[in-house]
Design a protein around this nucleic acid. Structure first.
Lengths: 164, 164
DNA sequence: TTAGGTGCAAACGTTTTGCAACTTG
DNA sequence: CAAGTTGCAAAACGTTTGCACCTAA
């Protein structure tokens, strides 16, 4: 389930892609930008801006929200990040490089996000769209529920308290 | 394409379910609440709060946002409305009674929402969840793209340019 | 040097809430 | 009458933006 398949060198590749993008767009490579990007590349989950900010501030407490928002937007433009909106109103970002298309399973108990891919579903989507004369540009499939771990947590939690 | 399958009597049934809910919760039946509910029941599309407010104000211009928000929340609690969040940041509501489970196809050109249902996809979702030991409580499948009508609109609008 | 970036705080758009006046039961 | 509801305006929420100062190229 790890997002990074190749370890460290994958990160430096992404770093390279990013600085390439920065260069081509005549933007500047700054300490803050690189810090945000590195934190993002080193993570393998679906981080919110808030979470990224917390991680980044461990290394530089002066960094503000705006920089994180702006940098993630750049990363998205560079094709390195994908913005996702699950059912909790806040944006989360995942790495897009090296990821084939996949869908999400969100645990409503612990908030963890699992990824999965299923070609058969993809093909069915295409055929449904075809029937409608609809031209798909993107899609989103999310399963909400309770993950394996939380099912047991939930049970023991309920076992402890009779009823509220 | 029509959401209401039985016509008028379906509306009165919903009205009944709603006032039942109101009664059981020891809430009060008010002119505003009933107006909002009726407007909602009479519609068959995916309305935003803003749109519902506009419709309601035709009959009573004094009604405010808060009442619409509060009433839609009640309708959702009563099992009569489902809140949806497509990729435009604003909440839309659809009627849930009499609706079998279905998914959505959203035209990113005109904003129209089409519904579809596919048992095979549902079954595949279940089997994927089972593989993960995940217990599904709900899910969301949305196809984004361009609907039949808009494909031609788009072509004539971009008459001079190359086709994708 | 200067285009561009930063952090702050204020602005945003949607949704929620506190409250005094007002209905409903 | 008491409890619940209303409309308003203010607050709250995540996000974006204007701006004076700063920094990379």
């Amino acid at each position: 389930m790890s997002a990074t398949k190749g370890g460290k060198d994958q990160i430096s590749e992404k770093r390279a892609v990013f600085s390439d993008f920065i260069g081509k767009q005549k933007l500047k490579s700054t300490r803050q930008r690189n810090l945000v990007a590195d934190v993002f590349f080193a993570s393998d989950s679906h981080l919110s801006i808030e979470e990224i900010l917390q991680l980044v501030r461990r290394k530089d407490p002066a960094i503000g929200y705006a920089t994180v928002y702006r940098t993630l937007k750049l990363l998205a433009q560079a094709g390195l990040a994908d913005e996702r909106h699950f059912s909790d109103g806040i944006a989360r970002f995942e790495q897009s490089m090296g990821h084939a298309h996949h869908d999400h399973m969100v645990c409503t108990f612990c908030g963890k996000v699992f990824e999965f891919a299923n070609d058969q579903i993809e093909r069915l989507q295409e055929s449904i769209a075809r029937d409608f004369g609809f031209e798909i540009t993107s899609h989103k499939l999310e399963l909400y529920g309770i993950c394996k771990d939380c099912q047991s947590k939930k049970q023991s939690q309920r076992a402890g308290r009779a009823k509220a």
